[in-house]
Design a protein around this nucleic acid. Structure first.
Lengths: 170, 170
DNA sequence: TTTTATTTATTTATCAATAAATAAATGTCA
DNA sequence: TGACATTTATTTATTGATAAATAAATAAAA
């Protein structure tokens, strides 16, 4: 038998894919279970309820984006461009997680909305700080522009509209 | 008794509010009916199903944004700023509709996604054309920046994070 | 009196969540 | 070492709730 933590990990990984494709409400715990190769009630052995499962998944998605941005190192005049490329990298390698981040704010569950709000703000603040530390002027406006562009790229992904991101500048 | 078209109108208006607050999946047709002052099954007299009701609502929301942008007239050097103010105006006067536009892309129903995709693209293209006609260079990039900023403003509204939009430039 | 407007009553379907049961693994000590 | 005991992993079966959608009935107006 697989150790407990392994199964939990497997469930989260598969839940990312299911939630990203179906969205929070159309994704059923049965689908997640099936994808992970366990039975539906067993999911509740690891997560108190569907909402907690989703939070675990969204933590992972935001965490990867946060970590990626944190690790970027570049001279001030190349920082924006390098960060932009880093984001595009994540969009390619972990598309599902990026889609989830985009969809997360549209979930009406109060607990989830609060959670997403905090995660979103954490990323925004860390970006602002990074731009500040790099000595860029108007760090906050720069962060706004950066995040706005990221949102557009993500919406274009969600709606399958590659035209929108052909010539976005960084 | 109220004429048919009036009731349909009333249902749409109330559906905007309900969908904006609850989101597509948590909003029930019973809620919409109650808000509109009719019975739940009667909603189906005007709309084939919940999806068609939602499409009618989303058409209205996108339509208002589209019309607003179309009507803006300003000299090239003030166009961006004027457009930005026009959008902020809509956010204030028709907050629910703007929230709906933001949430619409996160709906997994294929029919809705396709519908939203077309509406989104229509607005983006009309913006690009407007910037082109005004003689602005890089009309497409300008439109991207404009829409990206709009998305950020809207996400900030959805998540109730006014900090994010304090100093967004236009 | 025949449409039009609208309600009440019901059906069908779907899910999250719980409870109870089973099976496999691990440890203990004679 | 091998039988017994205990824990850990996992499944089957079921419930309770909710919501969309349909059909039949009623009331008002033209």
């Amino acid at each position: 038998m697989a150790p407990r933590e392994d199964k939990k990990e497997i469930i989260i990984e598969n839940a990312v894919a299911v939630f990203a494709e179906k969205g929070y409400y159309k994704a059923t715990t049965a689908m997640v279970a099936k994808a992970a190769g366990v039975t539906q009630p067993y999911v509740f052995h690891f997560f108190k309820n569907k909402e907690e499962l989703f939070k675990a998944v969204i933590d992972r998605a935001f965490g990867r984006i946060y970590d990626t941005f944190s690790e970027v190192q570049a001279p001030a005049n190349k920082l924006m461009e390098t960060m932009g490329r880093a984001f595009e990298q994540i969009v390619q390698t972990h598309r599902d997680e990026v889609l989830m981040v985009m969809q997360a704010h549209a979930i009406a569950e109060e607990g989830i909305r609060e959670h997403v709000k905090n995660l979103f703000l954490t990323i925004f603040d860390s970006l602002t700080l990074k731009f500040e530390n790099a000595g860029l002027p108007n760090a906050k406006q720069t962060a706004s522009h950066f995040v706005g562009t990221g949102l557009l790229i993500t919406v274009a992904e969600v709606l399958d509209l590659p035209q929108l991101t052909n010539k976005v500048d960084h």
